[in-house]
């Protein structure tokens, strides 16, 4: 820690910049709800061929996760599709 850091409070311009970065992450990753619904239905259709899904307990969303590799060191995040799909039973029809 630098000597002056003891005395220096974070400036309001730094606060503004940090807040902006945070809010833009969620603004940029926001997906149109209609498209999200279509993604969800498509995933259900594909999976339904092989397994029986609990459609009530289904949870699909876009979130931010820590970036990997080189970007990780910079502390940046990337959007990721998070899906929690409970399976009622595996189909045995092959």
């Amino acid at each position: 820690m630098r000597f002056m850091d003891f005395f220096r409070k974070k400036s309001t311009s730094d606060i503004a910049k940090d807040r902006l970065k945070m809010v833009l992450v969620s603004d940029r990753s926001a997906v149109n709800p209609e498209i999200m619904e279509r993604i969800k239905n498509d995933i259900i259709q594909v999976l339904a061929k092989y397994v029986e899904i609990d459609q009530e307990g289904l949870d699909i969303k876009i979130t931010q996760v820590d970036a990997e590799g080189e970007d990780r060191a910079k502390g940046s995040t990337v959007p990721a599709l998070y899906a929690n799909i409970p399976i009622k039973s595996l189909k045995q029809n092959n």
């Binding site: 400036s11 309001t12 311009s13 730094d14 503004a16 910049k17």
Partner: peptide, 11 residues
Amino acid sequence: VKHGNMMTAED
């Protein structure tokens, strides 16, 4: 900007 109360163009 000088007083740290406004973001710079670079920011």
